[in-house]
Amino acid sequence: MSPPPPAPLLDVRHLEVRYGDLVGVADVSLAVGAGQVVALLGSNGAGKTTTLNAIAGLVRPSGGAILWRGEAIGGLPAYAIVGRGLALSPEGWRLFVGQTVEQNLRLGATALADRQRVPELLERVFAIFPRLAERRRQSAGTLSGGERQMLALGRALMSEPKLLMLDEPSLGLAPAVVETLYDTLWRLHGEGLTILLAEQSVPLALEIADHAYVLQTGRTVLDGPARALEDDPEVQRIYLGIRGEAAASR
């Protein structure tokens, strides 16, 4: 493994998460430097979601360490972690469909210490996604898939995160919508936002990421600069879930 960048913002070391007897994540290590976009790759069930949930405090790690700016945050309640500037936009968006777009966004600012900044942040999100401004009084349940993704992303941005974690943001979206989404992420990255991205679509993720980690059955098995991984046949093999011996016998 290549050495992590100096003084990473987020440093996950040998993370292990168990659900009872079941091991969700066996041994995941990763580092995210300030301003970086880091991609977590891997097939279904590789442990991407569990890793992000553990960092966000939604599940309790059973082993290893999660360091945020050098402070151990593993096992802290979710609200304490959001309060430190880590926001997760969960898989499937998990919007509050019975509430309006604006109420969803305001809920995103829950952890914000300074409530005075809410209107300003709202305007910022509406500037990024003018569509949401048009629909601000509409219930979130009436939005299209693309608009829902915008709302999920906008909601995560409402806590003014230092690190934005996205779990499968492109899942179930039309290709054109995915493209717009990634344009937005690229723009946010350009403004200095640090992003940790779990994604099934390897080409998409590698296009935007600086660095990527590949997970397989709950372990980090490969990592490197995105550019290098793009051409690595090993990535395709692992990602497709072909087992080592099967590939070797070919």
């Binding site: 979710a78 609200y79 959001v82 969960p90 998990r94 509050f96 019975g98 509430q99 809920l107 829950t110």
Partner: peptide, 22 residues
């Protein structure tokens, strides 16, 4: 009331936004 409705709609989502659900 705002937080209660969020918890009712989705405890996990509420938690991930930093609502102190418990």
């Amino acid at each position: 009331g705002y937080y209660w409705r969020a918890i009712r709609a989705g405890e996990r989502a509420a938690r991930s936004l930093g609502v102190p659900v418990r």
